[in-house]
Design a protein around this nucleic acid. Structure first.
Length: 336
DNA sequence: TTGTGTTTTATTGCCTCC
DNA sequence: GGAGGCAATAAAACACAA
């Protein structure tokens, strides 16, 4: 009994719904006819054709819908539904965007006329298009930075390895020197010390660095101290790191959006700077300076400081985007 | 068919410039 | 103060796998 009553109510509602549908289609046809003359808006028919949508214009009938009687009123009072632009319209807008991504008022009105849209729609489309373009640019920039970072990291790791190698070398040589000093002091003959030291060092020459950056031979201290050579080479490399870093981070060409034209400087900077190309051109003119440095910093009395020095990784700061703080590292390298 | 993720259109609120 | 731009967001339209 109850179900029968329900069915009858549902049927009645369905009938009502059909009547509304027919009525509304008539209205839509009228709208289409009235609008066909003017090009101010895309008609409903056009929208459905353009989007290829087979969706029913109304939402499906819902027997549980309490407001069924108000559907028609609701429809005529609800704001316009979103409608997608046709392929042709989008193509036209895209071409226009390629020419200039900003929209002057006259151009906006002209485009709106040409496309049969409201000027506001054109403005919104350009606004959204600029946003999409910016997002893509950011993604590209991110990729470039990622690649640059990876390359820098590889270089940095290689330098660390080389530094460790040199460090152990310094230790070995220092120990040898100390041993010879002890031996000679026990015998009390200072003149023999240098001769012995030289022999000891010449017995086991240090391996030549893979990529000599600095002409170390000319910067050897008066004592002929091999340790000085080693340290100078390391210092020279650190200088290269600092300069490479400043190439990237101190550049005034950081990406910015002015007048809608995105700078490609990030790409250029990253591409040209990530290889840590050793700058050998400066080495000769820096020889005197390095000689002084080697004499000052690498005086035999400073050896104990080498022992105390912290060889662990330099600290990274929160603002360096995860890059090793190479500048600190360079400074720290000069101090030992 | 339906649930879900993505894309597109549109709105809102804030900011800057004239 | 109004116009226009941008970021954040909503919501409709669409694509697609299950």
């Amino acid at each position: 009994m109850e179900t029968e009553l329900c069915d009858r109510v549902v049927e009645k509602k369905k009938k009502k719904e059909e009547e509304k549908y027919v009525l509304t289609r008539c209205c839509i046809n009228k709208i289409t006819v009235f609008d066909s003359g003017s090009s101010s808006m895309v008609s409903f028919e056009d929208v459905h054709r353009a989007s290829g949508s087979n969706r029913p214009f109304f939402r499906p009938f819902d027997p549980n819908d309490e407001n069924g009687d108000d559907d028609l009123d609701e429809y005529f009072h609800q704001p316009e539904k979103k409608r997608r632009l046709s392929v042709d319209q989008v193509q036209f807008l895209e071409k226009s965007f390629e020419v200039e991504n900003k929209l002057e008022p006259e151009r906006k009105i002209q485009l709106a006329k040409d496309l049969g849209l409201q000027p506001r729609q054109v403005a919104i489309w350009f606004q959204n298009r600029r946003a999409r373009w910016k997002t893509k640019q950011l993604e590209k920039d991110y990729d470039v930075l990622q690649t640059s970072y990876n390359n820098l990291k590889i270089d940095y790791d290689n330098l660390l390895k080389e530094k460790d190698k040199l460090k152990t070398e310094v230790h070995v040589l220092t120990d040898k020197l100390k041993m010879k000093e002890k031996e000679s002091s026990s015998s009390g003959n200072n003149t023999e010390l240098f001769a012995v030291n030289e022999t000891a060092l010449s017995e086991e020459p240090p391996p030549v660095p893979q990529e000599p950056i600095f002409n170390a031979e000319s910067a050897v201290s008066e004592e002929g101290d091999q340790v000085s050579k080693v340290s100078i080479v390391a210092a020279g490399k650190q200088e290269d790191i600092s300069s490479a870093k400043s190439d990237i981070f101190d550049s005034d060409d950081s990406p910015h959006y002015t007048d809608g034209v995105h700078s490609n400087s990030l790409l250029e900077t990253a591409d040209s700077s990530y290889g840590f190309e050793p700058d050998q051109s400066d080495s000769s003119q820096d020889e005197d300076e390095n000689l002084i440095m080697s004499k000052t910093l690498l005086h035999p009395y400073i050896f104990p400081k080498i022992e105390e020095a912290d060889y662990s990784d330099p600290p990274t700061t929160s603002c360096n985007f995860g890059f090793p703080n190479i500048e600190d590292h360079a400074l720290w390298s000069w101090t030992y």
